[in-house]
Design a protein around this nucleic acid. Structure first.
Length: 414
RNA sequence: AGAGAGGUGGCCGAGCGGUUGAAGGCGCACGCCUGGAACGCGUGUGUAGGGCAACCUACCGAGGGUUCGAAUCCCUUCCUCUCUGCCA
């Protein structure tokens, strides 16, 4: 959630920022109007309520002293009706405001390049040169036909399309990667967590998936729970509605979880292979940071993910997303794109974002900031998406006969 | 899943229809005391919103109801604990 008071007081500036994220000016004007309406409604409700409280006290005193209360009672009764009306109005104003406010994305940072879409993202650097093959490198699904690591058909049989099965060395590779990622993150100071793979709606609202992106979530209807689309949701919300001590910041967390996404709107994209599945494994980093330290933590997270790719001998590039490609909650995002020789292109394998206080405000995560309480900054990033790492290893480390070389760092894990 | 008990401030723990945002204790902060410290004494110490100063409003798991007035009574719901059942 953006800071509505800030929006009210700095409307011009705020709307310019949010227009970079393609929010209509009219939506923002509505938002501001609703915000002011809520304040007004609350104010009159509270005034009436204060009056009622005074009357009630007087009533008690009259009773105690044995005074006549009939006249007072009529006054109180009529005021009561007014209050009920004002309360209803305030409640409606709040609902009206929320329905708009919760769907407004975060402000982009000022230093984020202003662009329309992913074509205008900014490449910051390349790490490792793509290997030159003396044969035509295959795509991972072709390689799978030789190694048998991935069973696409039977995965679909078990569930539906966009589900698959890993087996044998393919499955072991997944497990090895998970362990390698977690160990590496732990060495960087992240604490390992094992979290619920289903979360309730309040948590998903906290990190920004709800209410706007309900279509992309698997929901367990009768339980009112959702399969997590990323470990960012449970990890960030560990401190939902809590106030941390300044000395406990930053909290660096990491977890392996499967991730579940409906991929609504991606019909027809990446239909072959395991690049885009309804279920995939991922190791996630989440940081709860002091507002003045979040940039530092952000850089560390980007570097960590990049180092992991380098350790796996995977060529990649570091890309700063432009405003038009930024996610809903993000103020700033850097993607790591790994080279896929079979596809002959770079593909996203990690995305690291600083959401500033956007999620913190939604999830009410604060810290003791001297005398007052302030919102923390929350950050999240993949380290890494396991399925896509498998793809990258297969394609980058393939031999002409279709066999795959396992990177040296993974040998102890296999 | 069935039966019972319970959910109060950072923690423990009173309150069971009125001036209680909530006694008391612990913890914490500041001050006094001390050479310094402990002890002792004093003061302060929840969150959110509005005015943004005095002050006002809301919150005693959540939601609704009764009442002039509810932490206190009623209903619904969630959670925790104990016993039984079931299960990895």
């Amino acid at each position: 959630m953006i800071d509505l008071k800030y929006l009210q007081n700095n409307f011009e500036e705020s709307s310019l920022k949010l227009q970079k994220k393609r929010v209509n000016l009219s939506t923002l004007e509505t938002l501001k109007t609703l915000f002011l309406a809520l304040k007004e409604a609350n104010s009159s409700f509270e005034t009436a309520k204060a009056e009622q409280n005074t009357l009630s006290k007087t009533f008690g005193e009259y009773k105690k002293e044995g005074k006549e209360t009939t006249e007072l009672k009529t006054k109180v009764d009529s005021n009561k009706e007014t209050i009920a009306l004002l309360q209803e109005r305030a409640r409606e104003a709040e609902i009206a405001l929320e329905s708009v406010a919760l769907s407004i994305p975060n402000f982009p940072d000022d230093d984020v390049f202003v662009g329309e879409d992913e074509t205008q993202n900014v490449e910051l650097r390349k790490v490792l040169e793509p290997k030159v093959f003396d044969f035509a490198p295959k795509e991972h699904w072709e390689l799978s036909e030789i190694s048998g690591w991935i069973d696409f058909e039977r995965g679909v049989k078990l569930a539906k399309s966009r589900f698959s099965i890993l087996k044998g060395a393919g499955s072991r590779l997944e497990r090895a990667l998970v362990n390698f990622f977690l160990d590496t993150n732990t060495k960087k100071g992240f604490e390992e967590y094992s979290v619920p793979f289903v979360n309730n709606g309040a948590m998903l609202q906290g990190t920004g998936q709800l209410p706007k992106f309900a279509d992309d979530l698997f929901k367990i209807e009768e339980e009112n729970l959702y399969l997590i689309p990323t470990a960012e949701v449970p990890l960030t919300n560990i401190y939902h509605d809590e106030i941390l001590l300044e000395k406990d910041l930053p909290q660096l967390m990491t977890a392996y979880t499967p991730c579940f996404r409906k991929e609504a709107g991606s019909a027809g994209r990446d239909t072959r292979g395991i690049i885009r599945q309804h279920q995939f494994s991922k190791v996630e980093m989440v940081a709860i940071a002091h507002p003045q330290k979040s940039d530092e933590v952000f850089e560390m997270m980007v570097q960590n993910a990049s180092d992991i790719l380098t350790a796996l001998e995977l060529p990649h590039r570091v890309v700063a997303l432009c405003t038009g490609d930024l996610g809903f909650s993000a103020a700033k995002t850097i993607d790591l794109e790994v080279w896929l020789p079979g596809q002959n292109q770079y593909r996203e394998i990690s995305s690291i974002s600083n959401t500033r206080d956007f999620q913190a405000r939604r999830a009410k995560i604060r810290f003791k900031d001297g005398k007052k309480n302030s919102f923390v900054h929350t950050l999240n990033g993949s380290s890494l998406a396991v399925g896509r790492t498998i793809v990258a290893i297969m394609e980058n480390h393939q031999n002409e006969d279709g066999s795959i070389n396992i990177p040296a760092v993974l040998k102890p894990y296999m």
